[in-house]
Design a binder for these strands. Structure first.
Lengths: 334, 334
DNA sequence: ATACTATACGCAAACGTTTTAACAGCTTCG
DNA sequence: CGAAGCTGTTAAAACGTTTGCGTATAGTAT
């Protein structure tokens, strides 16, 4: 499987290999005739330039590392989809790097990707403390945090306005007449989730509502966790008419638990999610939720990163995207 | 962002850079003492070997191209997840390549990946004729087709036994008492779907059942298509008690249409899917379906490819995986 | 003491590009 | 007619590794 190199083409064309290189790169200092001849020959010989060799001299691989907890997660895979599209439109390819939601693995992936000389890294961080562990690498490789706010850290990030998103949801439930709303899935270790919880708490204080939570502070953002926790929750007396779930995945789990216990949604309890993952729009699910504009998020993230790369910016930028409420069938007037 | 090279380390250690290289690669022809000294220095200086340069001389990038229709698709993203895990466990990274289900784009991705010198390609093909368009590349780069049977093509593939899967589903419905079963989503241009339809047809013939289809031969494997087509289907008189959908996505669409028209599943119609995507296990969906063992599929695919790469095998292998029936709540006894 | 072997290390080539500088062959101008 | 300026091309360096080969030093056998 020996591939044909620029030298082979040069020899066949009877020119030096610098001429071949110039013919292909569209350099002006070459006669139109030789160019045509060389280009034709490249086609005939099935010549494909070796990107690796080019990367060496150009000091750019046109590769971006995408490190995320798991591609097998509706939110992540949708983000990956849009990121890949945007990156490709701008001439970059994506290397997939799973972190399993473990900061330690994130670190390993950074190490690997730096070795691979990727031009930059898009990080969908696992935890709030991702930042501290990753800090030593951040001046070695352009990085953009996406989907999570770093609060006051001097690094670029792109994120939805989680605080406002939570308030948006609360206002919706409030306007529907709900006064007893439980927040499900409060979570330590993630700025995103802290902000959502703060949005909830703030709204409660503004409107004199009682704050109600599931006690666990170390919840997981999975269907399974939502299911198990909800089963327990529903075992106790209900002091709320609506549940605001921290993520759609949690909401899906709650839905399952409710189904099994004969609790009807939205008739008995209203349920509101956050993220608008694909599944939430499914026929019988029909979950009302707060949308994260994933396509926009992705495209801003890629643009921010490429900007950082091409202009060698050393500063940082914070981009906050507006959330939106997607009204479906899981909430109703009280 | 100038990174430290092997030369910098060598200079600092007062040795030649071949010595540094050997110290890191664990070569035996070096004293234990210098090794320790050099390795320590590498750490202190934050030295990370340049994989690109290494790739040049080693003629191996430890990269695999994963070309698939869209990562934003439950089946695909789950496959990608398992493939990535398996590849990483064996020291390879994955480059994401979306083809949008378009053979032309598959071709482009092959071209790109060959330029990037990936060690091999895992292809989740879009169409049956992917093969013909890609053929010129297949002797330039080790490739494994996954998820789709190529029938008699002399190329390696890994796939579930779609024919048997369809028969498995039919037997299940048959045993439930169904005698009028409609096959939904027959599809030209994909061997996978042809085989499923053949499994259905064969079973019908064996058991004297009438074959019933939706007429369209160019269906799409999306929820939306399932929904639209089902709406039309349900407008006509029903001559069946069960629907066997070619994919879970189609089944989800059918479910939605049924929901809207007040047709109850499984009370009025039984519904059987194929693929067992994540969504099918969701609480209110609970779709009975034929499972494609994705993890196994992925791991066999990666192993097959790496085998081909490391042993420079020029032959091909066909691996067929057994499907299984996942019984949930969308089918019932008649 | 000599010859040989083993050990630890350095030198330099090679991988396939891009690009800078040099240069040969023209034309143009003073 | 000589200097200068274009134009199209070549030669060579550079990118950061790995590795085959050569070699100095030390150790061992004769």
């Amino acid at each position: 499987m020996k591939s044909v190199t620029i030298k082979d083409v040069a020899k066949a064309a009877g020119v030096s290999y610098s001429t071949v290189s110039r013919a292909l790169s569209g350099s002006p200092e070459i006669s139109e005739e030789t160019r045509r001849r060389v280009v034709q020959l490249c086609k005939d010989m099935n010549y494909t330039a070796n990107t690796v060799a080019r990367s060496m001299v150009m000091k750019s691989t046109k590769l971006l590392g995408l490190v995320l907890p798991s591609i097998n997660n509706p939110f992540m895979s949708e983000m990956a989809y849009h990121i890949d599209r945007q990156a490709r439109a701008r001439g970059y390819n994506i290397i997939l790097c799973s972190s399993s939601g473990d900061p330690q693995q994130e670190r390993e992936q950074f190490e690997l990707m730096i070795g691979r000389q990727v031009d930059g890294i898009l990080l969908l961080p696992a935890m709030a403390d991702s930042y501290t562990l990753l800090q030593p690498y951040l001046n070695r490789i352009p990085t953009v945090f996406v989907g999570d706010n770093l609060r006051e850290a001097p690094e670029s990030y792109v994120s939805v306005d989680n605080f406002r998103g939570a308030q948006l949801g609360m206002k919706y439930l409030y306007d529907l007449g709900h006064r007893d709303i439980l927040y499900f899935g409060r979570r330590r270790g993630s700025t995103t989730h802290q902000l959502r919880a703060e949005g909830y708490a703030d709204f409660c204080q503004q409107h004199g509502l009682r704050e109600q939570y599931c006690n666990n502070m170390f919840s997981a953002t999975t269907i399974k966790y939502g299911y198990q926790q909800a089963l327990q929750l529903f075992g106790q007396e209900r002091s709320y008419t609506a549940i605001f779930a921290a993520t759609d995945t949690n909401a899906l789990g709650i839905m399952q638990a409710a189904e099994e216990l004969g609790i009807r949604i939205p008739d008995d309890i209203s349920l509101l999610g956050f993220d608008n993952i694909r599944d939430s729009g499914l026929p019988r699910i029909d979950l009302t939720t707060i949308e994260q504009p994933k396509k926009l998020l992705a495209s801003v993230a890629v643009d921010t990163l490429l900007d950082k790369i091409t202009n060698e910016l050393s500063g940082y930028s914070h981009r906050i995207i507006s959330p939106a409420l997607i009204e479906r069938a899981s909430c109703r007037h009280i």
